[in-house]
Structure formats: structure tokens, C-alpha cells
Design a protein around this nucleic acid. Structure first.
Lengths: 193, 193
DNA sequence: GACGTGCGAGAACGAGCGTTCTCGCCGACG
DNA sequence: CGTCGGCGAGAACGCTCGTTCTCGCACGTC
């Protein structure tokens, strides 16, 4: 038996790294085979096509991102700190060496117009994150948690894009500060600092 | 004489529409030839390679977006209204039928890691927009116009991505409202509404 | 009218892709 | 020990792509 990590996990891990760094269409199956160290036949018996592998890649990213986010938020109990923890998590992530923007925005721009499966996976992920942010906003007692949740989602996506393009974590810091301002204004309009 | 529009403009127009809607790598030169109604030979004597056409596409988009943005802002004289006009322009744009997110974020996700030319064009565009937003922020008398400009850039990019993925102009409205809150807080901290 | 010349349509070429097939090997089982 | 079945390496196949070439046609000049 294959001791440590299952074959499927190895394939997905290699595909994830390559798709995320170079984009989906720039990466061929041969490159995934080389990176995963498995045969092409094994890839095709785990995933019937490249499209299926791409959708599995997106599902895996979705699970990873939301789990990591929730774990970071769970370190805090104060509602405002829980919202800000989202941007602290973002800051740590974008500052690492293997950050290349939002995999979902990238995949959507590349394939969303022509692949219903990709478009669906991206919309599901973004809706789930927005729902989570709305819940965090609700905890704070904000006047309009729906709107605040959407605004936090906008900040999150914009900060990811900007951090990737400028290759700097500064947008995450700016987004965090913006989130704090929006949050305080939504909870106690016009309050003193 | 070629009557109306020059050949180069026709090619660029067709390439722009196709690249922007479907992504760069999904669109072949044949499709651009069909859409532009010119011969493949003419395309290659205007642009020496597909890469050159892609960079011309990005330069054209940069010019179009910044010009349209500045014209919309120029309708107003009040500094706060000038900042908000950015998001009004965004709202009108994303609400139209031919909006497909930010062409620069999409191109960067698709090609930025492997094409220095694309990465450079994208960084230049984003830096120019951020600089423009910083200038608008400066006009308002904000305490830290650099930071406010960056925050507006984050809102702009995030709203574009979210509007594209959710296929709705709501993120533009949310971003506009967030911009107003950030702006007022940056100009007069803790002021009453 | 003869001739060169630039042009468009489409074939051609070489490379790369996703996917499948071939073949030689090795371990399981009677 | 003989046979069979699954496996990996890599070739093969059909397709698409970026780029170049061919060929036939229309047109300006003597």
C-alpha cells in the first residue's frame, strides 16, 4: 500500500501548485505527471479528464481557504477582532512565497466564460466566503450586516489582487484598516475614535 | 484608401473584444482574423507576434479606462463627489453587457507569471490608477492620501472582480458607499454623519 | 496587351496539447 | 514453475495553435 500520501492527493497537490502559479491553460498534463511523480495513466484513472482535475483543484482550494480562515478567526472572541482576523490571515498569506492572487478570480478570468463547471465552482466559493463574512458582520451588531459583509468581501478580493500584482502585503494592511473603519462606522455611526 | 477605420484599429478592436471576453489563451489568431475581417498576413504585418498584439491590447485598455475614468470625474468639482464619481463610472461600466471583470487582473492571472511584458503592462496600469486615486484623495484633504488612494484602489479592484463573478452591479454600489465612509473618516475623523 | 507586383484565401509546417495505446516488466496465485 | 493481470514509461494519435508559404488574381505602368 502507498504508505504516506495517497496517489490522488499527490496528483492534486502537484496540480494545485502548478495551476495556481502558472494558470490552468499554461500547465499540461505532462508537467503535472512530472511534478507528482506518477504515471499519466494513474492520473487519468483518478480524474477522467483535465477538466475534472481543474474542478477538483478548485474544490480543494475552497476547502483549504475557508478552513484556514475559520481557524484564524476562531482564535478570537471579540466580534471586531474576529472580523479583523480575516485580514490578518490575508496578510500572512499574501506575504508568503507561494501567493499568486486569488485562484478563483484567476480561474474565472481564464475559463469562466467558456466552462460552466469552473464558473459554478467560483461562484459557489465566493458566495460561501461572502456568507461567512456576513455572519461575522452580524456578530458585531452592524446596522446592515449584509452590506458590511459584501464590503468586506470586496476588500478581501481587491486586496488579494493588489497584493499579487504589486508583490507586496501593503494592500492587506490597507484593507484591514479600511475594514476597521467600515466596521466601527456600521456599529456606531459617527462615534469618536 | 481604407475609408473609415484603419486596419490596425480594426484588428485591435477585434482582439480586444475576444481577449477580454474569453481570455488571451483561449483565443487564436484565426478567430481574430474572422472577427476583424482581415487576412492573417495583414495581422502579422501590423503586429509581429501574438505577444505584441496582447501588449497592444493591454495598452489600449489602459488608455481607454483611464480616459473614461477621468472624463467622468471631470464632471464634478467637489472633491468628495470626484472620488465618488469613480464608483459611479464603475457602476455604469459593470452594468453594461460587455463587462467581464478587470482585463489586467485577468491577464495577470493567466500570463503574469510567465510573460514579463504582460506583468509590466499590468503593473504600470495599476500603478497609474492608484496614483490617480491618490491625487483625488489628496484633493479632499484626507489625512493620509497615500493610504486612502490605496484603499480606493482595493475597493475598485475588488468591486470589479465581485461584479463580474456575481454578474451584478451591487458590489459597485457597496464599494461606493464604503469609499464615502472611508473618505469622510479620513477627512474628518469621528465626525457626526 | 504584356508584365511585374502586392494582396487575400487558405494550405502547410512544426510544436504542443489532451488522451489513449503499446509493450515490457514484475508480483500474485495455482 | 507457468500464467495472468496490473503497472509505468513512453510512443502514438488527432487536434489546435502560432507562424509562414503558395498560389492565383487584380491592378498600375510601358
Amino acid at each position: 500500500m502507498d504508505g504516506e500520501t495517497s496517489t490522488e492527493t499527490r496528483i492534486l497537490g502537484a496540480a494545485d501548485a502548478l495551476f495556481y502559479e502558472h494558470g490552468v491553460q499554461s500547465v499540461g498534463m505532462d508537467r503535472i505527471r512530472d511534478a507528482a511523480g506518477v504515471s499519466l495513466k494513474k492520473i487519468y484513472q483518478c480524474f477522467p479528464s483535465k477538466g475534472a482535475l481543474v474542478e477538483a483543484y478548485l474544490r480543494r482550494r475552497d476547502q483549504w481557504a475557508r478552513t484556514a480562515l475559520e481557524e484564524r478567526v476562531a482564535r478570537h472572541t471579540d466580534p471586531e477582532e474576529r472580523v479583523l482576523a480575516v485580514f490578518d490571515w490575508l496578510h500572512d498569506w499574501v506575504d508568503g512565497p507561494d501567493f499568486h492572487g486569488c485562484a478563483f478570480i484567476n480561474a474565472f478570468g481564464e475559463l469562466g466564460a467558456d466552462s460552466a463547471g469552473v464558473a459554478h465552482a467560483v461562484r459557489d466559493h465566493k458566495a460561501a466566503v461572502r456568507g461567512y463574512l456576513r455572519d461575522l458582520a452580524h456578530e458585531t451588531g452592524a446596522a446592515d450586516p449584509d452590506r458590511l459583509g459584501s464590503q468586506l468581501a470586496v476588500l478581501l478580493d481587491g486586496a488579494m489582487s493588489n497584493a499579487s500584482i504589486t508583490d507586496s502585503p501593503a494592500p492587506a494592511r490597507d484593507a484591514r484598516q479600511a475594514a476597521r473603519t467600515l466596521l466601527r462606522e456600521a456599529v456606531a455611526p459617527g462615534a469618536r475614535d
